[in-house]
Simulated assay, not measured.
Amino acid sequence: MKYLLKIQEKIVPELISIVENRYTILRNIYYYQPIGRRALAEKTNISERLVRKELDFLYGRGLVKVYRSGTILTELGSKFLPELDKYMKELKGIRTLEEQLRECLGIEEVHIVSGGLEPSIIIQEIGRYAARLLRRLLKDGDILAVTGGTTLAQVASAMSENEKPMDIIVVPGRGGLGEEVEIQANTIAATLAKKLGGRYHLLHIPDSLQEENVDIIMAEPSIQRVLKFLEKANILIHGVGSAEIMAARRDMSREEIEELKERGAVAEALGYYFDESGEIVYVTTSVGLHLEDLKDIEKVIVVAGEPAKARAILSVVSPLYHNILVTDEATAREILALKGVR
């Protein structure tokens, strides 16, 4: 594949530009459909005249349909997009970037989605890719643990529905924060289980608890039942948050947040706060998975993106606890830059 791409670059360099334009157009249609030509031109930074020309081509190949309300992807177009993702990774050198980041972090796998989309859409693109990856990994008999957050909600949203039910169980990895119900771990667990045709169990407790209440809550039979499933989880997918933002979501006081900053906290995952060197500087009192539990889980997947989170991702992801990272191109390059890799 690499050899063919090098030949293409030398003999027909304009082909690469054409493919990149069509890929950008298809991805934007996927997220904004139905979308008009003018809006599509604005989103892609491609002239309206060229957008019209490329839409004619894509329509002729049966990949899109054009209506008065705008352009949408056909079923063929939706199925073709993941195949085009693979081709574009080779074309743009993303495979090489994945290998560089994998070696830098010391983990088993890194999956990077191509850039060229608006920041809000990049998170959806990470979710789309992570959903496909998760589907490939899951098999009957698995117990999947999930955490909450915006990126995880996108994974659940992007997961396609199974025609045949799977014999899997999905459970939240921790309690829920006091936030929108759509991004709570319970909601994400239920959504994934329903789409995959599996079963789910919910953890009806807040993420942060007073220490004296933990033993009382853990003694509850309904909580014990969920925790037993959680102990047997063989796949975990979780996100990474900015320390200050996550502290605010946990309703920490201004004084507590300032103390976290003084300790050098830059990231949060699973209720643990990390400094830039990856050292734990604070732990919330909670019921659910703890960091040491990750060592006993077969596959631990981190999904996180946005260049502003590069430092946070770098401080959290460790070969001691993690196997796979799914992120975006700009964030991957920022992580490598922070590590001095060019």
Rank of each mutant, 00 (worst) to 15 (best):
E292S: 04
Y273P: 04
A243C: 06
V302E: 03
V170R: 09
I18Y: 12
S286K: 15
R68L: 04
Y59G: 10
A337D: 03
G239E: 00
V113F: 03
A243M: 10
P221W: 08
V19S: 02
I324C: 05
E103D: 14
A308T: 15
L230C: 02
S160Y: 13
G173T: 13
A265W: 00
E99K: 10
D275Q: 01
V240C: 05
A219S: 15
D207M: 15
R135N: 09
R225P: 02
E276G: 08
Y3N: 14
K2D: 14
G60L: 06
E334A: 13
I183Q: 03
L26E: 11
S242W: 07
L230T: 05
G175Q: 12
E163M: 10
A131D: 00
Q210P: 06
R102F: 08
L152Q: 00
F274D: 02
Q210H: 14
E212I: 15
Y3R: 14
Q124I: 13
F80Y: 09
E108Y: 09
T187C: 06
P307Q: 05
Y282I: 01
N234R: 02
L177P: 00
R61K: 12
K309W: 06
R249A: 15
L133W: 05
G62M: 02
I94Q: 00
A156R: 09
P206Y: 10
G141A: 00
G176E: 14
I122Q: 13
L291T: 01
S318A: 04
N213R: 10
Y59I: 07
A153Q: 04
I169K: 09
E276C: 01
P119Q: 07
S286W: 13
